[in-house]
Computed example of a mutant assay.
Amino acid sequence: MRAPSPHNTQPWRFVVDGPRIEVWLDRSRVLTVADPARREARLSCGAAVYNLVLMLRSNGYGAALRILPDPAEYDLLAVVRFDGNVHPAPADRRLAEAIFRRHTNRRPFSTQPVSTVARVRLRSAALAEGGLLEFLDTSSRYAKVAALVRRAEAEQATDAAFQAESARWTGREPESSDGVPTVAFGPQPDLPGALPLRASHQNPTIPSRSFEQDALVAVVLTPDHGTAADVRAGLVLQRVLLTATADGLATSFVSQPFETKATRGPLLELFRGIGQPHTLLRIGHGLPTRMTARRPATDVTTVSATPDAPMGGPSSGVSGGGHSTEHVSERHHADQDSVVHHG
C-alpha cells in the first residue's frame, strides 16, 4: 500500500489464495486522460509487487514471482507465491524499513550534490532488478528532456480534460486516504528553473521559494517494452526509491512528458538504443515532508483461502499492512511463463 502512484490513485487490488497472492490492476483508479494506456498504473502496481516480495523476504519467507502469468487475464499483472524459508539479508531489512519512510518530496532540494557513492548504489539497485538508471545531469539529453517537460506542462495547462482529472485527485483534505492533499504540495518557485515542476502540485498558501536551478534527473529504463516491462520497471523503480530513502535522499517524479502524446514519442526516441524509459526522477537532498495517506489494506484485499505460509522461518521484526477476512469463491488460473525466485 505504500507504493507510489500517480496522484496517489493506488490502482491495485490483491487476491490471497492460500500461498498465492495475485496482484491485479484496478481500472477504476486509472487516470484515463493522463494515462490512457495504463502504463503508469502498471508501473505503480509493479512497485507494490516489489514491496510485497521485499516484506516477505525480510520476514523470513522466500517468494516466487511470476509477471503476467495468465495472458487471458489482462489485468492480472503478477502472482507471488510463498517459496519456503529464507534468512533475511541485512540489505533487505534496510530497504524494508525504508518502505514506511519513502514519500514524494515536492519541495525544494538543497544545493548539496548527490555523492558518487550514492549514485553507484542507485544504479546498482536498478541493475539488481534487471533495469537501468541513467543520470542526465552531465548528459546532452538533459536540455532536451527539460524542453519536453516544459512543452508537456504547457499543453496540460490548457487541456480542460486533464485539468479536470487532476482536480479530482488533488487538493484533498490531509486525512484523505487517497489522492494528494494540499499540505503535501510544494511552494511556487520564485524563479523558473531548467526543469519545471508540476503546477497542479503547488500550494499558493506557502511563500514562494527558490528551487534548484539544475535539478539532478535520472531516468528508469528497461531493455524491453510492453505490458510486462511496465510491471518489471515498477520493481526497478521501487528498489531505486527505497535505496534513495535509505541513503537519506529525497525523490519526486517528473511525469509530464509521458502524459502528453506530443512529447511521449520524442522522449522515447531520445533513449533509443539505451532502453525503454518508464519514468523520470528528481533526486537530491531535502527536508522531510508530509507523507500521503493510503487506504487500508482490507479495502483492496480479498482472501479466498487462508494463507498457508511456511512457519518458523527467521524474521527481521519488520512488519506492516494487514489483510481482509472476506471469503469469496475459489478461483484458479494456469501458471505460465518463467518464475523468478526471490530469497
Rank of each mutant, 00 (worst) to 15 (best):
L197A: 08
D190K: 13
A184T: 13
A215E: 14
Q188G: 15
S208N: 04
Q202W: 03
A184W: 02
P207I: 02
A215D: 09
D214I: 11
P207N: 08
A215S: 15
Q202Y: 01
N203D: 14
S210P: 13
L195D: 08
P196V: 04
R198L: 02
D190E: 14
D214R: 14
P187G: 13
F211G: 01
P192K: 04
P187V: 07
F211P: 01
R209V: 02
Q188V: 13
A215V: 05
F211K: 06
G186K: 02
I206M: 04
P204A: 13
Q188T: 10
R209D: 00
Q213G: 15
F185H: 02
P187T: 09
F185T: 00
L216R: 07
R198G: 00
S208G: 09
P196D: 09
A184G: 08
S210H: 15
T205W: 02
L216Y: 06
R209H: 03
A199I: 06
N203S: 05
F185Y: 05
S200K: 08
E212P: 06
P189L: 03
R209C: 02
G186P: 03
E212N: 07
R209G: 04
A194N: 15
P192M: 05
L195I: 09
T205N: 13
R198I: 00
I206Y: 11
Q188W: 04
Q202D: 03
P187R: 04
P187D: 12
H201W: 06
A184Y: 05
D214H: 14
A184C: 09
P189D: 05
Q202N: 01
P196G: 08
S210Y: 15
L197K: 08
H201E: 10
L195A: 08
F211W: 07
R198C: 01
L195G: 05
D190A: 14
Q202K: 08
I206K: 00
I206L: 10
A184R: 07
N203M: 02
N203T: 01
A215N: 06
G193R: 13
I206N: 00
L191W: 10
F185M: 04
P204I: 13
E212V: 11
F211D: 01
I206C: 00
A184H: 03
Q213L: 15
T205Q: 09
S208H: 03
Q213S: 14
L197Q: 14
I206P: 00
S210C: 08
A194E: 14
S208R: 03
Q202E: 04
Q213A: 10
Q202P: 01
D190T: 14
E212W: 02
I206F: 09
D190F: 06
H201K: 06
L191H: 11
G193P: 11
P196C: 07
Q188D: 09
G193L: 10
P189K: 15
Q202T: 07
P196K: 03
Q188N: 11
G193M: 10
G186R: 01
R198Q: 01
P196S: 09
P207A: 12
P204F: 07
R198A: 02
